[in-house]
Each structure stands twice: as structure tokens, then as C-alpha cells.
Design a protein around this nucleic acid. Structure first.
Length: 597
RNA sequence: GCCGGAGUAGCUCAAUGGCAGAGCAAUCGCUUCGUAAGCGAUAGGUUGUGAGUUCAAGUCUCACCUCCGGCUCCA
């Protein structure tokens, strides 16, 4: 009994118990849906982080409003359930069982094809094709520790050519408290959402008539962006990059030459036809930089040549994929292409890029493993449509990147089928506030473009040789990294990145003349300062400044005017006492230059 | 692009098919104040857009637009 031959509950580790709990609830959900909507076809229902889901092919569409009803049914059914019974079937029996369900039929066929034993698990009156892993007694699950959360469309087998099914998501934990904590955490996360904070802090906006996915930077957001751009350009110059400018538009032929066009045609803005020529808004910078490299013959002495640019790019992303600043149609990438002599030099350069990325992450207060992680994104030798065919180069490149990460002692995961078409890459993955992961920065190994563009150099022996290219971004797309930073800091950015660093507030209008002098002093030192002349109480002005997440407030009343000082208030900490203006300037300039938290 | 949901003042939100409202913000006035909201007045709307049903539509129907949650995609 109990279905699985796993160890009894006491010896199971917590993770496995939780997995079994969630998996059992997926069965329960399927049973409840079958009960309420008998015409529904069941498909699959795996365990996921924080819960489970099940994909259904409903005869009639359902909506969020139906979830409470389904949840209620689950709670009814579970009372009559205890353990799962394992039933073995052969292919013929299973196919007969699922004669009216093409999805399960397909799964049975596939299992049989692989020679695997087909097993069903039965509990109560409900049987489902399943490989096992359940709780000992469903009746003992806390009915308050799970909740159906939302509904979504999902393609059968994850392929957009297939029918779209209806996915019901559930959150599930061992105790009600854990569930409540999780739901509370989601609620808290909403307050950090960069889209919400971007509006509240007046950082950026969108306009329907400008176009979706095309952000407009308001002055304060533009300040953050400018500070970041100056920071990264200066840092890259120190590290031997050469910054260039190339146009945001180019002839279609350029992307045909690079080979990008057939791969990415659908996500490029359509060509602009003029005077019998076709131009494209650029979706990437690489070919521009390669043409720049080709402006004259190159010597081995010039390599590695690190060509960098804050490059605006335009990609016609599918409308449903756009999301705040994280996924946009127009963005600025801190981009670079490093032209290298050979694989060894390329690996040195990749390592240098990882040094830069780790330096930048540290300045942003981001911790590896916690706030970001490395992913080695690999190709697929069998997929000749998606990846350039050159098995040897793929093997070499992938192995070299893997060895490099190991040598650096970096923790990483390997992700098959995530490479660029021209080579493997190391992606630096970050999670947004809702837990969804995106690539923040990337370092790519490219053995294809040098051939397509004939990127050669003359070596010491006088021979012309082919290069290897490293594509990389240091802080990624400015839009995306700002979105991550806003969420990471819940809008309270470190001093050096804050659009307004100091707000000067007076107790009454009498001190405004003195306050203006203080403002002048701060401005002279390059500090971003704002003077509030509002005819409001100091309490109100402080409240507004705190809500705007301004790091320092300089408060001025008669006492300060008399002693030629300011009263300093620190964000989140409150009053930290009086000091001379010069003393304050010295203190915060040090903090700004240190770029620490 | 696909599935589901939403759209009312700058923001947060009300309004049985029957006069479109509140708080905050804004503007003006009073107040001149010591560390997270002082008081009063004024102004602010083609209820996302366009059709339709109805004596009557913010509310019901359809199409489109935008946003949100997913899926697919992500150079």
C-alpha cells in the first residue's frame, strides 16, 4: 500500500516529503476537475517551486472565478482519500483506458516506446498515469496549507504549434503558516516591483502613442542611467576597452552577411525602404563592430581588441513578452566585442570579463549565489537549424568555458539548448521580484562570425590568421539592470546611484536664504541636491522625502542658522545630529566615491 | 503571438442599468511650525477607443487598444 516503495515518512528528507505532498495535491486537483467538469481531458501535473500545477483540456473555458469551487471540491474529495494504490498496466490496457484522451495516449505510447513499465496510481475513485511519489495518507494533508492561486494558458508539451491547454497553479506547503508566509512574501514583493516604484519615484514612463515596450526616461531615472553609464564606461576604459559609436540603423545586407537575419527576422523591426535600399533598426551591435574592425588590416599586436559601446538596440519582441523595463523593444546594451587571436586568448578575455562582472556586482551590492548565478549555456549538436554546424568548435568552446568556470572556482549550472547560434556562452542570471529569472549579463564565445566577416589578422610569422570573438555585456541592458537594482533595493538605491542624494528642508520659510547657500555649497561639490520651499510642516516634508527614498536630509531651523550648521537625517535611520556643511560634504563625498552601500 | 484577467480624476479606489464620487496629489489662501501627513477653498472626467442593445450604459453585447498573470520566445 501507499503506492511508492519509498522510505516511510519519518526517514524521508523534508524536500522529498514536500515533493510528495505537492504531487499528491496535483492528483487531487485532477480528480476535483474531473468531478466538476467530466468532459475535461487530463494531461500532466508536475510539482514546481512552491507548489504544483496541472494542465487540462477543458471543453468549456474556465476562469479565476472557478478556482474557489474547484478548491472546495478538492477539500471534499480528500476526506475520502488515504493511500495510493500502484497498478501496473501494459501498453494495450493503458491505451484502452485513455482511448478518448489523445494527450495521455501519446504519453503511454512514448513510455512504451522507451520500454518503461506503465504505472497508474489509484486513490479513492481516481486513477492517473503516474510514476509515483505520493504521501502515505492524503486525508492527513492540512487542507489549509494549499491554495489554488491562478490560471494560465500553456501549450501542450511546451510547443506553440500545439493546442493551448488551461493550467491551474496551486501553492502548497506542509503547514498553513508556511503557506501564509509565502502568500505574504508575494504581497511584499509587489511593493518592490520596479514598475510600481518606477511610477512612484518618477523614474520612467511609457506612452501608448510612442509605442509599447519603448520606455521614456524621466529626469530622475535618466540620472540613474547617466551615473551607471559613466561608471561603466570609465571602468571599461581602465580595463583596456576602446569605446566607439556606431549607428542604430544599418542596411539589411549587413544582417544577411552576419547570418542573423534568417534566425531573427521575426524579432526585428521590419525594414525601412528608401531609394531602393532596405534599412533595419539594429537588433544587435556585433556586425557594426566587425565592420569597424575591418576598416584596415590588423596586426597581432593590436589583439585582443576590445571594442565597446553603449549601444541602443531594437527588437520587435512578441507583445505578450514585454514587461516593464525587464523586457522592452528598445534598450541600451553596455556591449563589447573582443577580437582575439585564438581560443587561449579568448579564454583569458572571458576570464577578464568575469572579473569585471564580479567587480560591478560587488559595487551593486549583489552577491553571487544569492542575487545572481552563473549558467553555462550550451548548444545542441543535433539541432542544425538553431545552431551553426561545427561540432568540433562547439565541443572545444563548451569545454573551454566549463574549465574556465571550474578554474575560477565559480559555481554554475549547465543549461543545454540555451546557447547563441554562433557559440556557447556564460549567462549571469538574476531573478526579479516575482521569482522569474532573466539573463542580466552574458559572455559569449563565437567561432562563427570571424568566418562570416573574415575577421583576420597578420600574425608574427607574417601569416594571416582567423580570430575568435568574445561577445559580452558588462552591466547588460541598462533598462534591465536598473529594473533589478530598483527591486533589489526596493527603490532605496545606494547613495552614489540615488537621483536625489540630499534634500534640504527648512523648518519655516525664514531659513530659506540660508538653505539656498547650503544648496549652492553641495551643488559646487557635484552633489545632487534638492531644496523644498514648500509651505508645509517639517513633518510633512520629511515624510515626502522619505517616501521618495532620498538618502540624506539636511534640516535647517533657527538653531542651525545661528550655529552655521545643518541637522542631518539619514534614510531609514532618523536624526543623526548636527554638523557643519563642510563636514557633511566631506562625509558624503567619501561615501559616494566609495560606491558602497 | 496564444490562454485568462483588468482598464473610472495625476495616484489609490467608490458608484442595483437611473444626477460620476472620496482621500491623497495639484492650484489659491490662512498658518511659520523641530524630525513620517496643519487648516480651508478651488479646479480637475468624452468612465481606454469605436460600434451596438436600451426610454436610459461606468455598469449589458461585440470589435480594437493598453496593461497584468502565465505559455511560447529571448541575438
Amino acid at each position: 500500500m501507499g503506492g511508492s516503495r519509498r522510505l516511510p515518512a519519518l526517514n524521508m528528507d523534508k524536500e522529498e516529503q514536500l515533493h510528495n505532498l505537492r504531487h499528491s495535491l496535483a492528483h487531487l486537483l485532477a480528480a476535483a476537475v474531473s468531478d466538476l467538469y467530466p468532459k475535461t481531458k487530463l494531461t500532466i501535473g508536475p510539482v514546481i517551486e512552491n507548489g504544483f500545477y496541472y494542465d487540462f483540456d477543458f471543453a468549456e473555458p474556465i476562469s479565476d472565478e472557478d478556482l474557489p469551487k474547484i478548491e472546495k471540491k478538492m477539500k471534499e474529495i480528500m476526506k475520502g482519500w488515504n493511500g495510493f494504490e500502484r497498478i501496473e498496466m501494459d501498453e494495450k490496457e493503458a491505451k484502452k483506458f485513455y482511448k478518448d484522451n489523445p494527450y495521455k495516449y501519446e504519453l503511454v505510447e512514448e513510455l512504451a516506446g522507451k520500454g518503461e513499465q506503465i504505472t497508474f496510481y489509484k486513490v479513492g475513485e481516481f486513477s492517473d498515469l503516474c510514476r509515483g511519489g505520493h504521501v502515505e495518507d492524503v486525508g492527513k494533508i492540512d487542507p489549509h496549507a494549499f491554495k489554488l492561486t491562478h490560471i494560465a494558458g500553456a501549450y501542450w508539451r511546451g510547443d506553440e504549434k500545439n493546442k493551448m491547454l488551461t493550467r491551474i497553479y496551486g501553492a502548497a506547503f506542509e503547514t498553513k503558516k508556511e503557506l501564509d508566509d509565502y502568500l505574504k512574501m508575494l504581497e511584499e514583493a509587489e511593493k518592490r516591483d520596479h514598475r510600481k516604484l518606477g511610477k512612484e519615484l518618477e523614474l520612467f514612463t511609457f506612452s501608448e502613442i510612442v509605442g509599447k515596450g519603448l520606455p521614456l526616461w524621466l529626469p530622475k531615472g535618466a540620472t540613474i542611467r547617466r551615473v551607471l553609464e559613466r561608471f561603466i564606461v570609465d571602468e571599461e576604459l581602465k580595463r583596456g576597452y576602446q569605446h566607439v559609436y556606431t549607428p542604430d540603423i544599418a542596411k539589411l545586407d549587413l544582417y544577411k552577411k552576419s547570418g542573423h537575419y534568417p534566425y531573427y527576422k521575426d524579432s526585428m523591426y521590419a525594414p525601412i525602404k528608401i531609394d531602393d535600399e532596405e534599412f533595419m533598426l539594429r537588433p544587435m551591435t556585433c556586425p557594426h563592430h566587425f565592420e569597424l574592425y575591418l576598416s584596415r588590416p590588423r596586426s597581432y599586436r593590436e589583439l585582443p581588441m576590445r571594442i565597446a559601446e553603449l549601444a541602443k538596440q531594437y527588437r520587435y519582441e512578441q507583445s505578450g513578452e514585454l514587461s516593464g523595463l525587464i523586457r522592452v523593444r528598445g534598450f541600451c546594451l553596455a556591449d563589447a566585442h573582443i577580437i582575439c587571436k585564438d581560443k587561449d586568448q579568448a579564454m583569458d578575455e572571458v576570464s577578464g570579463v568575469l572579473d569585471l562582472i564580479e567587480f560591478v556586482a560587488e559595487k551593486f551590492g549583489l552577491k553571487m549565489g544569492e542575487d545572481f548565478r552563473y549558467r553555462l549555456s550550451l548548444g545542441d549538436r543535433k539541432d542544425e537549424k538553431k545552431y551553426y554546424k561545427d561540432d568540433k568548435s562547439w565541443d572545444e568552446g563548451e569545454e573551454a568555458l566549463r574549465e574556465l568556470l571550474k578554474k575560477r572556482g565559480s559555481e554554475f549550472t549547465e543549461a543545454p539548448n540555451e546557447a547563441a547560434f554562433y557559440g556557447p556562452k556564460i549567462d549571469i542570471q538574476m531573478r526579479n521580484v516575482r521569482g522569474k529569472e532573466d539573463t542580466a549579463f552574458t559572455v559569449q564565445y563565437d567561432f562563427v562570425m570571424p568566418k562570416r566577416f573574415n575577421l583576420i589578422y597578420t600574425d608574427a610569422d607574417g601569416q594571416e590568421k582567423q580570430t575568435i570573438v568574445v561577445h559580452r555585456s558588462s552591466i547588460g541592458a541598462i533598462e534591465r539592470i536598473i529594473a533589478f537594482l530598483i527591486e533589489h533595493f526596493a527603490g532605496a538605491l545606494p547613495l552614489w546611484l540615488s537621483p536625489i542624494q540630499v534634500a534640504v528642508l527648512t523648518i519655516s520659510e525664514k531659513q530659506i536664504a540660508y538653505a539656498e547657500k547650503v544648496v549652492e555649497e553641495l551643488k559646487k561639490n557635484g552633489i545632487r541636491v534638492e531644496l523644498s520651499k514648500e509651505n508645509e510642516t517639517i513633518g510633512k516634508k520629511i515624510r515626502e522625502a522619505e517616501m521618495q527614498k532620498i538618502p540624506y536630509l539636511a534640516i535647517i531651523g533657527d538653531k542651525e542658522v545661528d550655529t552655521n550648521k545643518i541637522a542631518v537625517r539619514e534614510r531609514g535611520k532618523g536624526d543623526v545630529g548636527q554638523m557643519k556643511t563642510e563636514e557633511f560634504i566631506e562625509k558624503i563625498l567619501e561615501e559616494i566615491n566609495r560606491k558602497s552601500l
